[in-house]
Write a protein that binds this DNA or RNA. Structure first.
Lengths: 205, 205
DNA sequence: CGGTTCATGTAAGAAGTTACATGATTAT
DNA sequence: ATAATCATGTAACTTCTTACATGAACCG
């Protein structure tokens, strides 16, 4: 076991299955887009790969649901080995975050940017991150609550607002929001320094 | 030109060459580790690949410096095409940041963690990011200033403290610091919620 | 005597993106 | 009409990490 058999993205998929119960790759892709992205995105191709990988590892079982006029749904369900793997992953130390932000890289070498270019990139960054902040605030209001009990063939219900709330989802949503605020405030400052313009803005508390 | 011929990491290397003047892959690796990491790290193998790629693109010229008892140094120098490429890159819109933080993922699925595991991961995260904050504060005090004029065979001097300071390096260093502070404060809160312990800490202003 | 620095590279694998591919249904 | 949704997959490529490989010099 010197090389790991699974990777962060694998456990992202596994965690969603653990939380919401059995579902198809297509369902997982939608959850990824709503719950994990933009924190951690995944293409559908990658999700299907991870599902097959975990099936091979014995962490998931697949059941084919036949449908008329549409491709069969392949519904994946965790095995005991899958639950064990998820818990074992939680005991391993995570890699330390690398930001790898292209905008930051462009600012770093801003000395070599045509004057208008950096300013435009900063403005676009502000627009994009303002939108994200709004997105996160919406997610925060509709925090996911799993169906209880989870049913075999039931579709996941990511946006139920009643029942118990998950402390951990709340924590991560909070982080996403403070991060975006911090980033936005820095972007405003950077833009002001670069362009010497811009008066009022609205990210800080 | 539907597919790009170069990528963020390519311009990371190119920007360092633009700033500090001609140097070898080995020199660039050291600069990466001090200036860009932990914001954006690169293995030496990757840097050597990027150098060859850019040489093929005509963005760099290589000159071999012979040495006794050591492998030759290959010193890379930017061409006009290289300068043009760097400026052109600055005009392209950057990809929006994805955090992809494994610790965040583990917190998100904290419900499936053995109680002590999450707490330990949070504590280790705090230690790691405290160390980073210190690192960034040191870097901030020794902000890089390029040699003027840049000399053909001169070794780069990343830690000169006299002469003009670069506004953009300062901006990025500032961001790194506010980011680490924000993250640390969140980690403290998360740990407090998860473990119900921990009184005093020292990241907030 | 052992570890770090100097200096370069190859190879393999794992991670992630984008494009290609199909085809019916449903909503605007 | 046409776009989005449902539903799955393959292929190609880029990105990034880790391991393998060599070998002298220098510092403690």
């Amino acid at each position: 076991m010197s090389r790991p058999e699974a990777y962060p993205i694998t456990y992202g998929v596994l965690g969603l299955l653990a939380f919401w119960g059995p579902m198809s790759g297509y369902d997982i892709k939608r959850l990824f887009d709503h719950v994990l992205a933009p924190m951690w995105s995944a293409a559908h191709s990658q999700i299907y790969n991870e599902l097959r990988r975990m099936q091979d590892l014995g962490w998931l079982e697949m059941e084919r649901e036949e449908q008329e006029s549409r491709p069969d749904r392949k519904v994946y369900r965790m095995t005991q080995a899958g639950h064990d793997a998820l818990a074992a992953w939680q005991k391993q130390p995570p890699a330390i975050l690398q930001l790898r932000d292209e905008l930051l890289l462009k600012v770093l070498f801003g000395r070599f940017a045509p004057p208008a270019a950096l300013e435009e990139n900063l403005r676009n960054g502000i627009a994009a991150h303002q939108q994200r902040l709004l997105q996160y605030r919406e997610i925060q209001q509709y925090l996911p609550v799993r169906d209880t009990p989870v049913q075999a063939s039931g579709r996941p219900n990511p946006y139920a607002t009643e029942e118990e709330e998950d402390l951990y989802f709340r924590l991560v949503a909070d982080f996403a929001i403070v991060f975006e605020k911090t980033y936005l405030n820095w972007l405003y400052d950077a833009l002001a320094l670069v362009s010497g313009s811009l008066e009022g803005h609205e990210a800080e508390e």
